[in-house]
Write a protein that binds this DNA or RNA. Sequence first.
RNA 1: GCUCCGGUGGAGUAGCGGUUCAACUCGUCACUCUUUCACAGUGAAGAUCGCGGGUUCAAAUCCCGUCCGGAGUACCA
Length: 505
Amino acid sequence: MSVRVRFAPSPTGSPHVGNIRTALFNHLFAKHHGGVHILRIEDTDRTRLVPGCEEEIIESLHYVGVEWQEGLGKGGPHGPYRQSERKEAGIYQPIIDQLVESGAGYYAFDTSEELTEMREFQRINKKPTGYFGGSWRDADAASVEKARADGLPGVLRLRIPKNETIVIQDGIRGRVEIDSNTIDDPVLIKNDGMPTYHFAAMVDDHLMEITHVFRGEEWISSAPKHVTLFNALGWAAPEFVHVPAIKGKDGKKLSKRHGDTACLDFRRAGYLQESISNFIALIGWAPGGDREIMTMDEMAEAFSMRGIQPSAGVFDVDKLNWMNGSYIRAMEPKALFQMVRDYSGCDENQDYWAEKDAPTAEAMKAFTAAAASDPVLAEKAIELEQERVGTLPEFGAACALFFEDEPEYDEKMLNKWKGKEHIPGMLGDFIASVEAMETVNEESLEQMIRDWAAANDYEKIGPIVHPTRLAMTGRKVGPGLWQLMAALGKETIIKRLTRGQEMLT
RNA sequence: GCUCCGGUGGAGUAGCGGUUCAACUCGUCACUCUUUCACAGUGAAGAUCGCGGGUUCAAAUCCCGUCCGGAGUACCA
């Protein structure tokens, strides 16, 4: 049988990395087996619905490179793919009838007050909380009829068998056994007629012929309910694959407190698609072997359930930064330039940084302007900074030295070199040499500086290079001096060196 | 409280009865390269595999207990 998997988010907010990682696993698994990946929307809870959320889901999926062949936006033979629409289409009704008829499901008419009271009682008596029968599981037909006739708002519950061992087959953990007496009777259909997850997700998985269900570890506790449902309906259950949670560095479940968690925030923060998907896939999954930097195709090739770790993984931003940097370094300078330009010029990204770190936002704007007025220099700047940058927004500040009219001098460096005797003359000599040069390039510049060093008996080149860099950029670190000067060009060299003479005297 | 799932150097993972089983990546530190930072390269420190019992000729690997962590315990998903 060919593999069919699904990603089925609820439109209750922008998807976070945990959701997206599940989507990624689905995609990788489907691709590995040449199967089909379906996108379905589980919007049965109308009270929690967030408008515009579906777009964010799709955008997030695109960002990390997850593809699907059937479902939302694609159509397919098992539509509609929104559960609210499926309910409207009457898809669930025959199954509800079947459940009631067979006695596998039963109606319960407890009020919410009665239910909280029941739980309160259970709690006080140190009993497991839940609906283990209540007053309706074994109610006689007459009273159920009466309640229905009276128009009482009732729910449909699933009858979990007593004194049985429920076995669930988990793709990662293997066989898990649960005493059925510890499982309460879940609500299948709410009193507003909408199905719950327990009902709709299982029914849809069956109808859509899903073979493997990748879902968060938090579902493992309710898996027995799900296999009971499948059994009651006489259906074969798909294989459940409960993927481990993602924790923050403090070991707590990843949440807003840990910084960015929404998938799209990482795009705004300047992480490349390749590194985000590579990194996220590696939380809780190991491809085997020593490889870590992998393309989507390579990951799909290597993907298997066996490589998924049963324990929760930690989202380590340091490692993400490293990985992102290594993807940046692997890029063609031209493509990188285009990417940085698009990134820096995007309002959404600028707004993101304006709120988080204003100087970064400013630097992005400055770079955008500079790239527009002098794209050749800007591209050169990107190329020279490529080696030392971890994320896209960092290019703004890193490249600023190429465009500033009068760079601000690093105070420490200024104190260190200001007043040193050789500097004004040296800078003067450089100015004269550059003015006399026909072609100003890396070689001629390096030659000039080395010649000067030799002529003035300097063995080490540091006392020459450092103050010159300071004059050229105002900074103590940066790209190689001659590459830098060559990129800046004759006119700027002379201007900055002249200013350097004043500043350093 | 009850149920379930986990626990390998600071972080992510490999190994899942015995042949480097204690390895790989990030991080840290040192050195090399070099005009600086970074990159790259080399090397170092760091885990007796949560703890205690068993099973076995042999356990990180199997079993039991215990501790710690996480998840669930909704007419939310």
